[in-house]
Every structure is written in C-alpha cells, then in structure tokens.
C-alpha cells in the first residue's frame, strides 16, 4: 500500500515536468527554420508552390502555433500520440517498432558496462596504486576519451572486414529470412560489436565510480571490525564492502535510464541499427514534431518508472534508507 501511495505521489509530481518538457520542445522546434514540408521538398529534390501548399494543408501546418499545440495536448490527454509525417502511420506504432532493438542494445550495453565495470573497479580498488590499478584506470580513460564512431568503425574494420567474424551492420541477416532460435542467434551476432562499442564508453564511468566507492567503504570502521573478527579478505569484500559500495552504481543506472531510451545516434548510425536515437534525430531533421514529442513522452515515462524501481532497490540494498522517507 505504501508503495502504491509513493508511486501515485511520484507520478503526480512528474506531470507538470512532463507538460513543461513537451511544450518547451514544441516551441523550440517552431524556432527552427523550415517545417516538415520544406524537409520533404529537400528530400524530393524539388516541387512547386502549389504542391507545397497542398502538403501543408495535408499535415495540418496551415493552423496557428497555439492552435496546433492545443490540438496536440488535447490528443495527448486521450493517449493519442498523433500521426507521424515521415512514416505515414501512428506515432505509437512507429515508436513500438523501434523499441525492441533500442532496448536490446541498451540493456546489453549497460549490463556489460555494469558488470565489467563492477569487476574491474573492485580489482583496481584491491590493488590500488599498483600496476593493475594503473592499467585498468588508464584503459578506462582511453575508452572514455575515444569517440564512439571511431571505435565502431575500427571494430568493423578489424572484425568484419579483415577477420570476417562478425557482420558489419544491420539488425539481422535479410538475405535469408530466419525464424526461431536461428533468428535470435543471428540478431545476437549482429549486436556484439554495437554492444561492445557502446558498452566501452559506459564501462569507464562505472569503473571509476566503483573504484572510488570501494576505496571509500574499505576505509570505514565496520570493515576494520570485520577484518578484526578474522574474516578472510574475499568475504570482507563480497559480504561487507561490495554491497555498500553498490549504492552509487545503482543511482547511476537510474540516471542513465533516460540515455537508454534515447538510444545512441552515433552507434545506431555506424552499425545501421533501427533504434530510437536515429528516429529522434531524423524527426528533428525532418521537422516531424509528432514523432519527436512522442519519443520524448515515452522516454519521460520510462525514466519515471525506472527511478521508481531504483528507489525500491535502494531500500533493499540498504535497509537504513526507507523508500517512503
């Protein structure tokens, strides 16, 4: 019951934020020169003024800005995300189609980053200021500082062009349409390189946070007590330190949920994946307001949900924090 109350309060608090974000983006896009018809003419390579006028009517652009904003919000209340100009179908369907690849890629990349970061962070903290620590920290920095498109392209050059182990891009093999387990394996094969490329950047962040947090907890009194009562080092680290050091990592996951749904334009472009990041980018370039607002709306809802789950997780990891408090 307390959880439900908390959920209700959270949701109520986020409605004004959501409203402000949507109105803000709507207005911001009005400042961008050109509308979706200009974008369409640019794509077609030409068209006359009559065609353009017909198209503006078709997309409802002949109305005033407040009228269009009002219409949009009214539809949103009825949970109707509108019609996508570039895709010619309802926004909800467009987003639903793009969700699975995005979620798959982002979950894989974040899990990889989380667990690899956790292990490497613990290793670095245990051997602080000795060569494993230096090596791990330097590698982390290198991954973090390297642009992801370069990483992606180099991975393609090495693994797809020279070694020919993995496909260079795409979500699945379309020259032969597969089903069942073979399709799953095929998609997994296609996601290895993008996951690594995206994961390596997140990895650096998790690694640094984990290392710092481990070092901090290792110096606390209760760790000395644990050691004093004769526990071996592994047990001290796993049972006492790790659990406490995990809190900042969980916070970070909560924060990055937004990034997760936003996808990664760069990695999706380099590996030709049909993700939400590319969709959002395209919507801006094509001035497809409905699609863009739809993505923002869905992302915002997801962030609210994930942060709620994170709050619950806190309470589980550290009983001193009460979810209601």
């Amino acid at each position: 019951m307390r959880i439900l109350a908390l959920a209700g309060r959270r949701l109520a608090a986020s409605i004004p934020t959501l409203f402000l974000i949507l109105v803000g983006i709507f207005l911001l896009l009005q400042f961008a020169p050109g509308d979706t018809v200009d974008a369409m003419l640019a794509q077609m390579g030409g068209g006359d003024a009559v065609t353009a006028q017909q198209l503006r009517q078709f997309y409802g652009l002949d109305l005033s800005v407040p009228a269009r904003l009002g219409q949009y919000l009214l539809r949103l209340v009825q949970l109707d995300l509108g019609f996508s100009a570039i895709y010619g179908k309802p926004v909800a369907i467009v987003i639903a189609e793009r969700l699975p690849p995005t979620l798959l890629l982002m979950t894989a990349a974040l899990s990889f980053a989380f667990f690899a970061g956790l292990v490497l962070g613990v290793l670095a903290a245990r051997r602080v200021n000795r060569w494993p620590d230096t090596l791990i920290s330097t590698l982390g920095l290198v991954f973090y500082a390297t642009p992801s498109f370069w990483f992606g392209l180099m991975a393609i050059v090495v693994f797809s062009i020279y070694l020919q182990w993995l496909p260079a891009g795409g979500f699945e093999d379309i020259t032969s349409l597969q089903t069942g387990i073979w399709r799953t394996l095929d998609i997994a094969r296609h996601l290895v390189l993008p996951t690594l490329t995206l994961g390596l950047i997140f990895l650096a962040i998790y690694l640094r946070i984990m290392r710092a947090s481990m070092l901090e907890v290792l110096n606390l009194d209760f760790v000395r007590t644990a050691r004093a009562k004769g526990l071996d080092e592994t047990r001290v680290v796993v049972r006492h330190v790790l659990r406490n050091a995990l809190l900042p990592m969980v916070t970070l996951i909560g924060l990055q949920a937004g990034t997760m749904l936003g996808g990664s334009v760069v990695v999706e472009s380099v590996f030709s994946l049909p993700g939400l990041g590319r969709l959002a980018y395209e919507s801006v370039v094509q001035r497809d307001l409905n699609t863009l607002l739809g993505i923002v709306f869905v992302s915002a809802i997801l962030v609210i949900v994930v942060n709620f789950v994170v709050d619950l997780l806190y309470a589980r990891l550290d009983p001193r924090i009460s979810a209601g408090g």
Binding site: F149, L153, S160, I161, A168, G169, S269, V270, S272
Partner: peptide
C-alpha cells in the same frame, strides 16, 4: 536495400 545513413559505415559494408 539496406538503410545505412552513415557513409563510412556503408563503405565498410561494401568491403565486408
């Protein structure tokens, strides 16, 4: 027809 928006990625796919 494969949708590839990144030009360098397209070149890589040609080579692969």
């Amino acid at each position: 027809w494969r949708v590839i928006t990144d030009r360098s990625a397209a070149a890589a796919q040609l080579e692969a």
